[in-house]
Design a binder for these strands. Structure first.
Lengths: 203, 203
DNA sequence: CCACTTGTTGATCAATTGATCAGCGGAGGG
DNA sequence: CCCTCCGCTGATCAATTGATCAACAAGTGG
């Protein structure tokens, strides 16, 4: 009757799989209640005992680090810069494409909330991440806009303004749980269009 | 030698003054470490014993409510709407004036951080506050823009985009502790100008 | 200067929580 | 079928934390 056990709720798992399972639960749990969440609630969510958490993660700090690694790692795609620099494409399309990709990467419940919890807690990773955003993404975008004919050069603060207006969609949705458009693309396109229009010399 | 005791570190205070002192410390403390901060650390910051906190606030929840009351209350000035509706003033000046006043009200370490901690924690007050912002501030602003000659009507989502771009200055400064312009006024003026320029029909 | 009022404290309790460990039991090898 | 390996659990500890209370002492009136 019972075939191979894989689909059944086995209790004994391979260490790697179990570790992933706990880490998944940790990401979900800490995103929900913050980094101050208890290991007991986390274990309950993962369907294991609290002691088992410490079999795979030596301390809560180590677990938190693993959560950060999973959430932050590979979130920024290096190829984005190439697309930003591709002057064969109109600047407006490049801006729209970048923010489409960027929001697709970070507009998740887990990322948005853990990033905000960590930011409030003063995590160093957040500052590093945002420095990177400013220097490696917003600065190139700014240069490309400045190099586009018919557009006056925006300041980096202007770029942060564009960035913030778009990111705020995710803040409203995932932090404040307010209703937002299902697809942020139209709002992004409108924001980008307005931004560029504001950089064109008045007629 | 010792004159009147007022400037000296008296131990015994009038209940009202002591309550204020504890509440002040609570606002500062919870802004710093979140609503999960301990009453012992809070008492240390206030310079009193932990037991005294419970003389003035029956429970931690009651204390938290008092903190919310102090932080949220009277933060939104009803007169702002009148200024928004004043069509004798150009719409761009009204937008600039509103966001100057609005950011002056909320760009404080305590407000920004407690609002964010509470938002992550799912506090109902946040949703109420933001609903109010959308319906009582952004909606009128939107109507006034729509009624301005030479401007196409923005959607409410457009208004949230303008709003988010400006509020994000405070998020960068107080949540992420990133360097931001000392005075947000120029950035606000630029954001407002761009926003309106984007609503003007292309030449 | 004494005594009463009451603002304040130190001690303490029970519940929570991070962390540890001896031992149970599932599963594969012989 | 049994034996060994090791993934996993239940019990437990020490520290933290919200909350309580009897006792202390600062200030005031007599």
């Amino acid at each position: 009757m019972d075939g191979p056990p894989p689909p059944s709720p086995r209790r004994r798992l391979e260490p790697e799989a179990r570790r992933e399972q706990i880490l998944d639960a940790a990401v979900a749990h800490f995103a929900e209640v913050g980094l101050g969440g208890t290991t007991r609630d986390l274990a309950r969510r993962a369907g294991v005992t609290q002691a088992l958490v410490y079999q795979y993660f030596g301390s809560k700090a180590e677990l938190t680090e693993a959560v950060f690694a999973r959430v932050y790692l590979d979130r920024l795609d290096p190829r984005w810069v190439d697309a930003i620099r591709d002057r064969a494409t109109p600047i407006e399309a490049r801006l729209r494409a970048f923010y489409a990709a960027y929001t697709r990467a970070i507009f998740t419940y887990e990322w948005m909330r853990i990033f905000m919890w960590a930011g409030l807690a003063g995590e160093v990773l957040n500052r590093r991440y945002l420095d990177h955003v400013g220097e490696r993404l917003l600065a190139p975008l700014r240069e490309e806009i400045a190099a586009s004919p018919g557009l006056s050069a925006p300041s980096l603060e202007d770029m942060w303004n564009l960035h913030g207006g778009i990111v705020y969609i995710g803040i409203r949705r995932f932090i404040y749980r307010l209703p937002t458009p299902e697809d942020p693309a139209p709002a992004i396109a409108a924001a980008v269009a307005r931004f560029l229009a504001g950089l064109r010399p008045a007629a």
